[in-house]
Computed example of a mutant assay.
Amino acid sequence: MIPIRASLMRGGTSKGLFFLAEDLPQDSAARDAILLAAMGSPDERQIDGVGGAHPLTSKVAIVAPSTREDADIDYLFLQVAVDKAVVSDSQNCGNLLAGVGPFAIEQGLVVPSDNYTDVRIHMVNTGTLATARVQTPEGKVNYEGDAVIDGVPGSAAPVYIDFLDVAGSSCGHLFPTGSTVDCIDNTALTCIDNGMPVVILRARDFGLTGQESPQALENNNELKAKLESIRLKAGALMGLGDVSKKTVPKMTLVSAPVKGGAINTRTFIPHRVHEAIGVLGSVSVATACVVDGTLANAYFEQAKQLPDSTVCQLAVEHPSGAFSVEMDVRGRSAIASFCVNRAAILRTTRLLMRGEVMIPTNASQNSDI
């Protein structure tokens, strides 16, 4: 067995292993073999690894000193499939991002300040930037506090994250098709990428209320087949190429809010249904809400009263609660003039365990560790 230093952390509503880049092979194939063994994939239960048998608990963050002058650290996110021998770098993860700043501070990559520390993070997957504000009283990361986020029991210290330049980060454009509404398989949809490529569809167009449980949606094989057909075509339309083996775009069914929020969502990620909604997925949906003409905008009643340039806070409802997103935008009446000045969210994180994850020798025999 080969020991490799790692920390197990919850970030937002996700959980995963955090590594220093120097502790893993540079060769991606060798690295991926190690990560599959660490998580226990491919196996639906991930019984021979530390994965939690769900995409939200089978994630990896790899952190290193930044290669950019405008960032402190580099963060590479990898999604480890549960039942397949697949490791994907095709997307960011905004939930796991909440743990990246604290991890970097604890590993000595960032020097902490006395009260709080702003960590500038280069998200390697898309080449974009985010800043995480981490509480560091007396120069030590604080994980305990009163901040509460839906989908996570209890409370913890807040981690505020500003996304600085994520519009079109994967597709090249905020609205990659150049339109607020497209049609695929006789179904209207909005394609958007403000940090996460998302296809927004109306739940009612599939005979749904939008309030179905994640389990009920996962058990609906006819629905999943329709969504996958649309997803494959939308991926090409959005400039993502063949997405049959990619985890993007995410497919989000929207409906009228039921808890006083801006909009209600159910998100396929892309084949399992999220128990909540991803951080950057919620940012993309919130962005669509404030732009006139999108499918999401039609459900956001307050949009009618918003000025063309505005700072507003939206609650994006999901199966386990709601996600608050602060938007600072201008030119929202037309996509040609629309610009996102800032998108910010609140997350929490917790260090669960640190030490060494043990890798079978046969999984690491071709690596340079």
Rank of each mutant, 00 (worst) to 15 (best):
residue 168 G to S: 00
residue 239 G to S: 08
residue 259 K to H: 13
residue 22 E to P: 04
residue 289 C to W: 06
residue 6 A to I: 06
residue 28 S to A: 14
residue 297 N to A: 12
residue 42 P to A: 00
residue 7 S to K: 12
residue 238 M to I: 07
residue 344 A to K: 15
residue 103 F to I: 11
residue 14 S to G: 13
residue 299 Y to W: 05
residue 194 N to V: 13
residue 172 G to F: 02
residue 284 S to P: 05
residue 66 S to F: 04
residue 266 R to L: 01
residue 341 N to G: 13
residue 137 P to C: 03
residue 335 I to K: 00
residue 93 C to L: 04
residue 247 T to R: 00
residue 164 L to D: 14
residue 120 R to C: 08
residue 7 S to P: 06
residue 344 A to C: 13
residue 104 A to E: 11
residue 361 T to N: 05
residue 93 C to W: 01
residue 190 T to N: 07
residue 62 I to D: 01
residue 195 G to Q: 06
residue 232 L to N: 06
residue 245 K to F: 01
residue 124 V to W: 01
residue 281 G to I: 02
residue 145 G to C: 09
residue 297 N to Y: 10
residue 125 N to Y: 02
residue 16 G to L: 02
residue 84 K to Y: 01
residue 119 V to C: 10
residue 103 F to P: 09
residue 114 D to S: 10
residue 349 T to C: 15
residue 199 V to W: 04
residue 44 E to T: 02
residue 55 P to I: 01
residue 271 H to C: 00
residue 79 Q to H: 07
residue 130 A to H: 15
residue 323 F to A: 04
residue 347 R to T: 11
residue 120 R to L: 11
residue 73 I to N: 08
residue 2 I to G: 02
residue 328 D to M: 03
residue 44 E to D: 13
residue 319 P to T: 04
residue 185 D to V: 04
residue 69 E to F: 10
residue 293 G to Y: 11
residue 50 V to D: 08
residue 162 D to A: 15
residue 369 I to D: 05
residue 166 V to P: 01
residue 38 A to I: 11
residue 50 V to L: 13
residue 253 L to T: 03
residue 161 I to M: 14
residue 345 I to M: 14
residue 156 A to D: 11
residue 244 S to H: 05
residue 278 G to A: 09
residue 19 F to T: 05
residue 40 G to N: 02
residue 212 E to V: 01
residue 319 P to Y: 03
residue 361 T to H: 05
residue 282 S to F: 14
residue 147 A to W: 04
residue 122 H to I: 07
residue 259 K to Q: 14
residue 196 M to N: 13
residue 35 L to E: 12
residue 303 A to M: 06
residue 191 C to I: 05
residue 357 V to C: 10
residue 226 K to S: 09
residue 3 P to L: 15
residue 33 A to R: 12
residue 347 R to V: 11
residue 358 M to I: 14
residue 29 A to P: 00
residue 158 P to C: 03
residue 237 L to F: 15
residue 316 V to P: 00
residue 293 G to H: 12
residue 37 A to V: 12
residue 90 S to Q: 12
residue 34 I to C: 15
residue 155 S to L: 08
residue 97 L to N: 15
residue 125 N to A: 02
residue 118 D to K: 14
residue 158 P to V: 04
residue 105 I to E: 08
residue 199 V to C: 13
residue 247 T to S: 00
residue 77 F to T: 02
residue 251 M to W: 01
residue 116 Y to M: 09
residue 328 D to Q: 09
residue 248 V to R: 00
residue 210 G to N: 08
residue 91 Q to L: 03
residue 250 K to Y: 06
residue 54 H to W: 03
residue 224 K to R: 09
residue 241 G to K: 12
residue 222 E to V: 02
residue 12 G to F: 14
residue 228 E to G: 07
residue 156 A to V: 09
residue 191 C to T: 11
residue 92 N to E: 03
residue 177 T to V: 04
